[in-house]
Computed example of a mutant assay.
Amino acid sequence: MTFGKRQSGVGSAAQALNVNLAAAQGHVVTESTAPTGHPIRWLIILLACGAMLYGLVVSYGPDILRDHRLAGTWQPAYDLRAMEGKCERRNFVITFCSAKIQSVANPSQAPTAHRFMMLFAGGGGEALVPVRSTTDRTAVSIFYAAETKLWNRTLSFIFAAGILALFGVGALFAFFKAVNYFD
């Protein structure tokens, strides 16, 4: 067929009839169910998903557990000051917030960094009020993160960990399939 030339209706009808010609002649068309890619590629993806899941659990997990354990016991801490607080929203979906909490009574003490993430919420314009727990005096946080957005943080953590675990399991099955473990 020549590019740009109009063909008669007979030619297109003939092409439509020849679509299933291979099946009519007895040729079997099969598709490969094996995942594309070398097993090393799937192993690298599996290790990357595992490392990201581990990093997520280690960095955000203890703070969320602590905040749930101490929920309802937070009071404003007038001897602390929040500084360098900022929230960065990415693609209108995920927000990463961070703030440093420094002691007013002991300014030579290094500030404590506090970071958290939220899904479908922004932290813009919220007051950064440092709080301290009445049951554990060493536990300090930002009120917005510890009380106001605690459930959002928890569900965001569970969702992110679940997605990473799902990708990891998928990469594990693709790895086993690529090395013909299931065959």
Rank of each mutant, 00 (worst) to 15 (best):
T134A: 09
F116M: 11
L53P: 00
L155D: 11
S103M: 09
F92E: 15
L17W: 05
V10H: 07
V104H: 08
T148W: 06
G26F: 02
G4W: 13
G125K: 11
L46H: 00
F96E: 15
M52K: 03
A110E: 15
Q75C: 03
M52S: 07
V179S: 07
V57E: 05
N20A: 12
A127M: 11
F176I: 05
L21C: 07
A160V: 09
A23N: 10
E147K: 07
I163A: 07
C87Y: 06
R6E: 13
I158P: 05
G11I: 08
P111G: 06
F159G: 12
M118P: 02
I158L: 15
V28I: 13
L21Y: 12
D136V: 10
N18C: 09
T73C: 02
A161P: 01
T36G: 13
G168M: 00
F143C: 03
F175K: 00
M52P: 02
L53F: 03
Q7L: 11
V131N: 02
K5S: 12
G26I: 02
A34E: 10
E126L: 14
G72D: 01
T154R: 04
Q102A: 15
T134L: 08
Q102K: 14
A24V: 07
L17H: 08
G168R: 00
S98W: 09
Q15W: 05
I45M: 03
D136K: 08
W74K: 02
H38N: 13
A24S: 09
L65A: 14
F120G: 05
I142G: 01
I64C: 07
A146F: 04
D183P: 14
A146S: 13
R81K: 14
G4M: 10
A77M: 05
P130A: 01
N152L: 08
R115Q: 12
T112E: 12
E88V: 15
G170N: 02
A174M: 07
K5C: 09
A13H: 07
A178D: 01
A174Y: 00
P111Y: 08
A174C: 09
G125R: 10
Y144G: 03
K5Y: 06
Y144D: 09
V19G: 06
A99P: 01
V58T: 15
P111V: 06
W42T: 00
C97E: 05
T134P: 04
I44G: 01
A51W: 03
E126I: 10
D136C: 04
H68S: 02
V140Q: 06
A127N: 14
Q25Y: 10
M118N: 03
V129I: 14
I142Q: 02
S133I: 03
D63A: 14
V169L: 03
T95S: 14
V57W: 05
Y60L: 15
D67H: 10
T95N: 13
L21R: 10
N106A: 15
G11D: 10
V57Q: 06
A82R: 01
P76S: 05
W42L: 00
A51Q: 05
A71T: 05
T95Q: 11
V129F: 03
G50P: 00
I44L: 09
G55H: 07
R69K: 11
K86M: 12
K86H: 15
T30G: 07
S133P: 01
P130D: 01
K5D: 08
C87E: 06
